[in-house]
């Protein structure tokens, strides 16, 4: 899916991946309520268009880094739902053999270089990959997905400065969902539209509708092309909204009901469905959605039947040479 204008097939595939992601989130919500998940789960309901649209724009050898709320990036990049679910449930068959958990899924083969649960860390991570690409003369690019909370970190500034200074092939995709944990964006930044910061680094910046998967796709695709041409980084601010809480352990109460309702009405899947029904007819879209849900159901069924991992010490962490078992 690298064409400038996505085909009907591409559009339907993006829709399918958004539905797949939504169904993952809803299933996780149910399983959390049933006490069957471990640790907090950070759902991205309502933000699917950002991760799916952006990864759809990537070339096969591009890299992407994402946040602790990265399920749309995982599935958008084409990771196997069964292995994603297996990782979330700590199974041996998960992408990281159960060592990572839902925030730290990484898959080198697809260039999905990790969710990252240190807020802001995905920004220098992609920047460093871009430096590696540049030094080796490769026409590739790296995509950093990060949130409006991460935009306030020092490493965000440092990374943008270095990337712009060295014209690194990196795209900064700011997934603006309005909240840093419980604190509204207006309490975190004096500037409502963060894209204006791009000017300070001498790189292009734009604000787009993050709930419009096609808009995300288009903006990111253009920025990646620019990066591959050696023209340096771009900042894209995709405005979206986190309709569920920060995580499954979030007690809520800080997001106004009216605000949530307003954004639910602009649900990215509803928007995409409407557009697709116009183009392809309701039957094809419904079939696509049904298949996506069935795929995720099957993924859960298979992953939950997978074995738990066996422990092995990490030899490279051993404090004593030639003693893989560690200290004692």
């Amino acid at each position: 899916m690298t064409a400038n204008t996505p085909s009907d097939h591409d559009l339907l595939e993006m829709h399918r991946r958004m539905v797949l992601t939504r169904h993952l989130e809803e299933k996780l919500g149910e399983m959390h309520k049933a006490g069957r998940t471990r640790g907090p789960i950070h759902r991205c309901d309502g933000q699917e268009a950002v991760g799916v649209g952006a990864t759809a724009a990537m070339a096969a050898d591009d890299y992407v880094t994402t946040t602790h709320r990265g399920h749309a990036v995982y599935l958008g990049r084409g990771l196997d739902p069964r292995r994603v679910v297996a990782e979330i449930f700590g199974r041996e068959t998960g992408y990281c053999g159960g060592r990572g958990g839902h925030m730290l899924v990484g898959d080198v083969e697809t260039g999905m270089m990790g969710g990252n649960a240190i807020v802001g860390a995905s920004i220098p991570a992609a920047t460093g990959m871009a430096l590696s690409m540049q030094l080796r003369g490769e026409a590739r690019a790296a995509l950093a997905v990060f949130g409006d909370g991460a935009a306030q970190t020092g490493i965000c500034h440092e990374s943008m400065n270095i990337a712009a200074l060295w014209r690194l092939p990196v795209v900064f995709l700011l997934e603006h969902n309005a909240y840093g944990l419980t604190v509204h964006h207006s309490a975190q930044s004096s500037v409502p539209d963060l894209a204006v910061r791009a000017a300070g680094y001498g790189m292009p910046g734009e604000t787009i509708d993050g709930n419009d998967v096609l808009a995300v796709y288009g903006a990111v695709e253009a920025a990646l092309q620019r990066a591959r041409r050696g023209e340096g980084p771009s900042l894209i601010e995709a405005r979206t909204y986190r309709v569920e809480g920060f995580s499954t352990s979030d007690m809520g109460g800080y997001q106004p009901d009216a605000e949530i309702a307003e954004w639910r009405a602009r649900d990215p899947i509803l928007l995409a469905r409407a557009a697709l029904v116009d183009r392809l007819g309701a039957g094809r879209v419904e079939q696509c959605e049904t298949e996506a849900r069935a795929e995720m159901e099957a993924a859960f069924e298979a992953a939950l039947a997978d074995p738990m991992p066996a422990f092995a010490p990490h030899v490279a962490s051993a404090p004593y040479a030639a003693r893989p078992e560690g200290g004692r």
Binding site: T65, M113, A125, G128, M129, S132, R136, E158, S159, N161
Partner: peptide, 19 residues
Amino acid sequence: PISEQTLTAMAVTAAMTGS
């Protein structure tokens, strides 16, 4: 630039991706 935190983080991912 004087950006130790980012430089270190960049070294990490550069090292993960072939450099």
